[in-house]
């Protein structure tokens, strides 16, 4: 098993290099970091030429990638932008943990900018994921045990409606009902935007209160897919011969459902959770935007809007690494759940 994990980690190195190269080339062609430089005014032509040289954007793309990857402290660069490369570079490169500095938030390290936002996103997305998985397990198992019952049919209808709705609509509708109208009717109402009320401060209670609507919006959409998936997986497992054997032994229904069936059904469930978890790091772009949640999704979309290439690359690479790591973790969980799976 240890050997397998080491092999998978080694295999991940060329994979991540290829991913980073593709992303880097795409990003260089997708945006113009010099368009406004984080401000509101277009950059003047004379500044543009200087900035291009200062940021090294006049270099061929493979040199730019090389500097991004391994840094440029071994080469002479044109730091003052006078057209003469006379100073040594200051960048250490991604391989040495330096993702460069943000263009919009001038001079701030990309890692600092990202780790400022990451906890906000994690608290929102992990809460949503826990709500989704636990709720979907409950609903999926329950409706599998009572297939085609009234409960199952009603739930199928509601979930289908949820699945069909765009997330921005759900977000705005909940905001309209539970914040705006509840306030108008003089009922206790939920806050619309932000992580906390600045007058109260960043307390746990405030964050929880502000999380209710975004978590609901994110969960409501994904809930349908998850619970239908769990339902169909459970139904398939419950029809297996070994479940009949377990019943013929007189085991209590609870033990059959939660041990004999669920342990078998958990494999496909682990697969989708394992694929979803790393993507959580990217945050919920739309939801964070609507609820003004200062998370990764907003950082990412702002970065793209304003051509903040270093930050966007940082976010994308973080997700890429997380995908690779979570795939390995998923495999380990597989082996733990199913004794037939061995990697050695």
């Amino acid at each position: 098993m240890t050997r397998y994990i080491i092999r998978r980690l080694l295999q991940a190195i060329p994979l991540l290099l290829v991913i980073s190269l593709i992303l880097f080339v795409l990003m260089q062609n997708a945006t113009d970091p010099l368009a406004t430089m984080g401000g509101r005014m277009p950059t003047k032509p004379e500044d543009r030429a200087r900035l291009t040289r200062q940021l090294g954007l006049d270099k061929p793309i493979y040199i730019q990638y090389l500097y991004w990857l391994v840094g440029n402290d071994w080469a002479k660069v044109d730091l003052d932008g006078d057209g003469v490369a006379e100073t040594s570079g200051k960048r250490h490169g991604v391989l040495r943990g330096d993702f460069g500095t943000s263009i919009v938030q001038t001079g701030r390290q990309v890692t600092t900018v990202i780790f400022e936002r990451l906890p906000n996103t994690l608290i929102l997305m992990l809460t949503a994921e826990v709500v989704i998985v636990l709720g979907a397990l409950f609903v999926g198992i329950y409706s599998a045990l009572r297939q085609y019952s009234l409960f199952d049919n009603i739930l199928t209808g509601i979930l289908f409606i949820g699945y069909s709705m765009p997330i921005f609509f759900v977000a705005l509708a909940t905001m309209y009902i539970f914040s705006i109208n509840f306030q108008r009717w003089g009922l206790p109402h939920l806050p619309t935007v932000g992580m906390f009320d600045p007058q109260v401060g960043k307390t746990t209670g405030q964050i929880m209160l502000h999380m209710v609507l975004p978590v609901f919006s994110i969960s409501f959409i994904s809930f349908a897919a998850y619970s239908r998936y769990i339902r169909s997986t459970m139904l398939e497992v419950l029809g297996q011969d070994y479940i009949r054997t377990a019943r013929s032994k007189g085991l209590p229904r609870r033990e059959i459902t939660y041990i004999h069936a669920l342990k078998n059904a958990s494999l496909p469930i682990v697969t989708i959770v394992g694929l979803d978890l790393p993507l959580l790091l990217g945050g919920a772009v739309v939801t964070e935007r609507i609820f003004a949640w200062p998370g990764m999704g907003r950082l990412f979309i702002d970065g793209i809007d304003r051509g903040d290439t270093p930050v966007v690359m940082g976010v994308l690479m973080l997700i890429a690494v997380a995908v690779v790591v979570f795939q390995i973790i998923t495999d380990i969980v597989y082996a733990w759940l199913d004794p037939r799976i061995r990697f050695d």
């Binding site: 070994y242 013929s248 007189g250 085991l251």
Partner: peptide, 28 residues
């Protein structure tokens, strides 16, 4: 159903056709 659980396995037991699929693969 719970009274039936006391009959199954204790009073009346059953074995099945296909031993390859009749045992739970993930339990010892």
């Amino acid at each position: 159903e719970s009274e039936m659980e006391h009959i199954r396995g204790r009073e009346i037991a059953m074995i099945f056709q296909d031993p390859m699929t009749s045992l739970n693969p993930v339990l010892t």
